[in-house]
Design a protein around this nucleic acid. Structure first.
Length: 264
DNA sequence: AATAACTCCAACCGCGTCTCT
DNA sequence: AAGAGACGCGGTTGGAGTTAT
């Protein structure tokens, strides 16, 4: 092979390995492959190089035909209906892309696989992260329950004020949609300047509510994720006390539903 | 305007299964 | 029955294009 030919092949960046070309296909190679299939039909891919004059191995030819040149391929974006089918079939079959592709005429396993990876895999990861979060939440809830138990015992011993959960629930009902942001809550509750729940809740209950929302007896430093923390607390509250959450706010129930909706 | 980050997708690779001799 | 080659599948890579900062 002359150096000119070698240089030309480098420029076309078709890599030659053991005599086989690799990398992107040229229009001429496509034409030769289409001609070959017209004459000999699909299959016998290892004969393509010899019969069609292509410097491609059989595997590469088959892949190019199946994923790109086949005339029955459907071009264009995956439709919402196709996406639905992919989701349903993936839930049933897992990563059996060729099986899924059989239910989507004109789509290749490679195309579906790529679509899944780019559109759903990341969301699945987020979902798994959420599952980690819910484990941590469970742990926090258990700690919180222990803490409450301890508190109650101490309070009974000292015969001091007893927290009445029913009272708190009704207070929450009365103050529907008034869930404050954390900095507001922290500032107001600790300073006891302006009541957060102006209707009825006294300073003592404000601090307690803050701790319920945040599963913490102490007031933490302000954070940039105030809303997250507050709603996190609400999820826990729901799990912890039964139906506080549902009885509390239709809006929050809607939010909860949307947050709990599984996605891929 | 530059560039970093992200998305898309064609193509490759390794391996398991099938088919033929 | 066994070995070799062909085929098919799922995972991965890397370049091009697009979007965000």
């Amino acid at each position: 092979m002359s150096w000119e030919v070698m240089a030309a092949e480098q420029l076309a960046w078709g890599v030659m390995e053991e005599g086989w070309r690799k990398g992107p296909w040229t229009a001429e190679e496509d034409r030769l492959l289409i001609e070959y299939v017209k004459l000999h039909g699909e299959g016998r891919w290892n004969s393509v190089a010899r019969l069609a004059g292509l410097k491609r191995n059989g595997k590469s030819c088959r892949l190019r035909w199946v994923n790109y040149l086949r005339p029955d391929l459907k071009r264009g974006q995956i439709t919402p209906h196709e996406e639905k089918v992919i989701l349903e079939l993936h839930a049933r079959w897992g990563n059996r892309w060729s099986t899924i592709a059989r239910s989507l005429p004109g789509r290749t396993d490679n195309e579906i696989k790529n679509y899944w990876r780019t559109h759903f895999k990341k969301k699945a990861k987020v979902s798994s992260d959420n599952s980690e979060k819910s484990k941590a939440r469970l742990l926090r809830r258990q700690q919180f329950q222990q803490q409450q138990l301890l508190q109650q015992q101490q309070q009974q011993q000292q015969q001091t004020q007893v927290f009445d959960m029913r009272r708190l629930m009704s207070l929450l009902d009365e103050n529907e949609n008034r869930v404050p942001t954390l900095p507001q809550m922290k500032q107001d509750a600790s300073a006891a300047a302006t009541p957060i729940f102006p209707n009825t809740i006294d300073d003592h209950h404000q601090v307690f509510l803050y701790s319920v929302f945040n599963n913490s007896a102490a007031l933490p430093e302000a954070t940039n994720h105030d809303q997250d923390i507050n709603w996190d607390g609400l999820w826990n509250m729901d799990e912890f006390s039964g139906n506080i959450y549902y009885s509390n706010s239709a809006n929050r129930a809607t939010l909860r539903t949307s947050a709990a909706t599984p996605y891929y």
